[in-house]
Write a protein that binds this DNA or RNA. Structure first.
Lengths: 138, 138
DNA sequence: ATCAGTGCAAAAGCTTTGCAGCGGT
DNA sequence: ACCGCTGCAAAGCTTTTGCACTGAT
């Protein structure tokens, strides 16, 4: 059993298992959000008996412990997951290759400010998705 | 057959039918985006033989003709549809009652500008979703 | 030894599709 | 009369769940 994984998981109050270690590693490796199936396909190469439902359960667990974050793009019906960096983050999504490029900085506070001045809505969060073509696809 | 519907649909190059008229009316009536099932339930009251798949086909047709616009919220796995007002529009979504309140004005051009200055991404569109509690639910 | 975690299979929820018959022009 | 539109049923795709077994502490 990997001590690093073990320490990480126990610090979040959950058990370390081979599958969870795997999912954590795979989330760590991927530079942009991935679907449960993406994770599953990569995980199955290393651990052929792993099951898709375990991946879903693990991802859901990670989200509930704030280890990961789930989001859904308007373009697809699949949810995607990424490690929770605890930073404010948005992506540009390429319509062709589906690549997700993170925004380096985001002037969203302007929007929240403007909105809260104009309504009684209590704003907790916001999602911004920029859609277009990445440099390689345009 | 309703002449108004007929004229509208032929101007978009598609046939007018009872079901399409109904869907158009129901989209017109609703002040915020609705799911296919919402439309179906309302439609079934007036036209009991109507079928869910027809609603889906009609909504998809409307979207392909730019009569309607489809979007998916991160909170739900259902798609929602609304008439295409051809205006830039975003919503605040209440976490509790799921009410969608349109933003009166949106400083998004700031974002697109900032983003396009910082990357080679060709921006075609963006989606903004504000999440929180509406005045009644907070 | 205990109890949480997992694999497997089945089901659930939303959406799409094939096909035969109906309906609009 | 023609051909597109619809209803119905079945399937598809993503995600969830029940259950018995496995594995971590």
């Amino acid at each position: 059993m990997d001590k690093t994984h073990q320490a990480f998981f126990t610090s979040h109050g959950i058990k370390s298992t081979i599958q969870r270690n795997l999912v954590l590693d795979l989330l760590q490796e991927s530079e942009s959000p991935v679907s449960a199936e993406d994770i599953y396909l990569k995980a199955a190469l290393l651990q052929p008996t792993v099951n898709l439902s375990t991946i879903y359960r693990t991802l859901e667990l990670f989200c509930s412990k704030n280890i990961a974050v789930k989001s859904t793009l308007s373009e697809s019906k699949k949810a995607v997951y990424e490690l929770n960096t605890h930073t404010h983050k948005h992506y540009m999504v390429c319509l062709k290759c589906k690549r997700m490029v993170p925004l380096t900085n985001c002037p969203c506070s302007l929007i929240e400010k403007a909105v809260s001045e104009n309504s009684d809505f209590e704003i907790l969060d916001h999602k911004l998705e920029i859609v277009g073509y990445c440099p390689e696809c345009k």
